[in-house]
């Protein structure tokens, strides 16, 4: 009960700060609109106003404050504007509509899941190789690390262009970018997990003359499960980022990335913010879902009490 109160307080503070921030962010635009509508604005000269500080403008034109939360194209939309837009484009629209966020969310989600599956599979395979072969450890790991130092925003257009030139388009290029981002945490986590059994555990298997594959299936793999799930949670969030980034350079017409892009073309900040929130909510749901699966798996394994 007390913790719920604390959480609600934090949320309330964030929302209050957000509303407060809307006032200085939007005041100039609001004054322009008010002047056009015939209201008296201080100071009257638009040129003077442009060089004035926001705080001064707010003090001189306090009548305009409520309007900063109601603009059609604010610099910073107010929380309720974003919430209304989210509601209207999810519950208020048919899923088949091109304006439904559920539809766009699904387009991005499908690429995310495909990329996540590829990235996870690849990550696990690489980790198994790295753990069992010194050559792979020395040759693959550095490249995996280097691969993550290249900004994805620079790499994504190249991946898309290269794939397009060989005739691959649609969901695949997005999934590839998504996989590119998500395989890395899985490799790192799985390598750590597969190496987590200590000397004694490995010696014990040697006293049984266990084969490498027995050691893998009976010791290394089960021991790596908690590490795997920690990585998967990072991986799925990275996958979603990858899928969204993959939608940006193509001028895609569908997907959360496309909504972000279209929003910024047309100055539809409310649309941008609602797409951002939709992405954040989606990521939170995916991570929570993985957390649930983790709890179930570890409980069945007897590790989580």
């Amino acid at each position: 009960m007390k913790s719920i109160l604390a959480v609600l307080t934090v949320i309330a503070v964030i929302i209050a700060l957000w509303y407060a921030a809307c006032v200085p962010m939007n005041i100039k635009g609001v004054l322009v609109e008010a002047e056009r509508a015939g209201a008296e604005v201080q100071p009257p000269s638009a040129k003077v106003r442009r060089d004035m500080g926001e705080i001064g403008l707010i003090i001189d034109n306090s009548f305009a404050i409520p309007a900063t939360w109601e603009q059609a194209r604010p610099r910073l939309p107010a929380p309720h504007q974003v919430a209304t837009e989210l509601w209207n484009t999810t519950v208020g629209k048919k899923i088949t509509s091109k304006r439904s966020l559920i539809y766009h969310g699904w387009v991005t989600l499908s690429a995310t899941l495909l990329g996540f599956a590829i990235g996870t599979g690849l990550g696990i395979l690489l980790a198994v190789g790295i753990v069992h072969s010194r050559v792979m450890d020395m040759s693959v790991m550095p490249w995996a690390i280097v691969s993550q130092t290249i900004p994805i925003i620079a790499l994504a257009p190249m991946i898309i262009v290269v794939l397009y030139s060989v005739g691959v388009q649609g969901i695949i290029p997005k999934a590839v970018i998504s996989a590119y981002l998500s395989f890395f945490p899985v490799v790192v986590g799985m390598v750590k997990g597969l190496r987590s059994p200590d000397h004694m555990q490995l010696d014990l298997l040697r006293t049984y003359s266990a084969s490498q594959s027995q050691g893998f299936w009976k010791l290394r793999l089960p021991a790596s499960m908690p590490y795997l799930f920690a990585s998967l949670k990072i991986g799925i969030a990275a996958s979603l980022v990858g899928a969204i980034v993959g939608e940006l350079p193509t001028g895609a017409v569908a997907g959360l990335g496309a909504r972000l892009l279209a929003g910024s073309y047309y100055g539809q900040t409310v649309q941008i913010w609602s797409a951002l929130f939709a992405a954040a909510i989606l990521a939170a749901c995916l991570v929570a879902l993985l957390g649930l699966i983790e709890r179930m798996v570890l409980k069945r394994m007897g590790i989580a009490s």
């Binding site: 004694m200 555990q201 014990l204 089960p222 590790i303």
Partner: peptide
């Protein structure tokens, strides 16, 4: 061994 080293998942 000195430690039991049982597998926690078994």
């Amino acid at each position: 061994f000195q430690a039991a080293g049982l597998y926690p998942w078994r």
